[in-house]
């Protein structure tokens, strides 16, 4: 086959362009540290990369939600423990004041103490985190407990706590409703109010009768303490699980998307060698012309 001058240059141009393009691609990969710069570099990996990135993104929200629940769990823990202490105090008062050695004066001052306890419990019940009352259940925007002059406490919240997502399709109660803590089974406020009334009325047997109520309230509160504990540890487990899952995703993403530097650098070197070799051979070929021998 005849090899003409134009062909010589055309082939050189074409090959130089191709090698340069490949060098450019390799350089881009090294600079960005990414194996996939455009989807066409590996369409399947690029599209699963999007799925994984999205999952990571959503997971970070689930983790935020879980962290919130964990913080909330801390508040519940403090609150329920506080309730427990106050109830023990009330029970002690009831036991002491039920004794026949006590008189109307001590009982009246104890009644004041019980009033204080009720007020403190209402304050606990109205704990607010952010813009939400944590014991309001779904009615997080409304003050859950109101106290009237006669120390009757009304619950304005909802019986159920609202829930939030902690994972794809998995909801978890965002806390505990005040209904469960204060009202259901054995109404703490009713018991204390009865005690307060009996104390004010200097009614020793009446005071004794409230002990059963207080006992029931105490055991319910104890159950709630362990409930909060389980709740918090469950959340913590979830957080840990999410962290592990995120690490898995990161690893898959890295495997899919990140460049193997050693490999690309080798590729790059091979390409630059080819480039140099081509320029060298061209320089040599250029000299092979009959023109050099004509004077």
């Amino acid at each position: 086959m005849r090899v003409t001058d134009r062909l010589k240059y055309a082939i050189l141009n074409k090959n130089l362009a191709r090698i340069k393009q490949n060098i450019d691609v390799a350089q881009n990969k090294i600079a960005s540290g990414k194996r996939i710069i455009a989807p066409s570099d590996d369409p399947v990996a690029a599209s699963s990369g999007i799925g994984l990135e999205a999952e990571k993104n959503m997971n970070s929200q689930y983790t935020r939600n879980l962290e919130k629940l964990k913080t909330l769990g801390g508040f519940y823990d403090t609150s329920v423990t506080g309730i427990h202490e106050l109830l023990i105090k009330a029970k002690e008062i009831a036991i002491t004041q039920a004794s026949s050695t006590m008189d109307a004066t001590t009982r009246r001052s104890s009644a004041e103490e019980i009033k204080g306890i009720i007020e403190q419990l209402v304050t606990i019940g109205n704990t607010k985190v952010g813009s939400s009352y944590i014991f309001g259940g779904e009615k997080a925007g409304e003050i859950p407990f109101t106290l009237d002059g006669d120390y009757n406490v009304t619950f304005n919240g909802s019986e159920d706590a609202s829930s939030i997502y902690i994972d794809k399709g998995t909801k978890e109660a965002a806390g505990i409703s005040g209904y469960r803590v204060f009202i259901s089974d054995s109404n703490i406020f009713d018991g204390l109010k009865k005690l307060k009334d009996a104390l004010e009325a200097n009614d020793a047997s009446g005071i004794g009768e409230t002990l059963d109520d207080l006992e029931a309230a105490l055991s319910k509160t104890q159950a709630n303490i362990s409930h909060v504990g389980t709740y918090v540890s469950k959340i913590e487990n979830y957080i840990e699980y999410k962290d592990v899952r995120n690490l898995d995703i990161d690893e898959s993403l890295s495997q899919m998307m990140d460049v193997d530097i050693a490999q690309v650098v080798t590729e790059f070197n091979a390409l630059s060698n080819a480039y140099e070799a081509m320029l060298y051979s061209m320089a040599k070929i250029q000299n092979l012309s009959v023109l050099n021998y004509l004077t």
């Binding site: 999007i50 925007g141 609202s162 939030i164 997502y165």
Partner: peptide, 22 residues
């Protein structure tokens, strides 16, 4: 695109954790 879509739906979750929040 996908990131901004997930961020949008995440922002609703954020609201769900504090429904009264501005």
């Amino acid at each position: 695109l996908t990131a901004s879509i997930t961020e949008f739906f995440n922002s609703w979750q954020e609201l769900s954790t504090d429904p009264e929040s501005i």
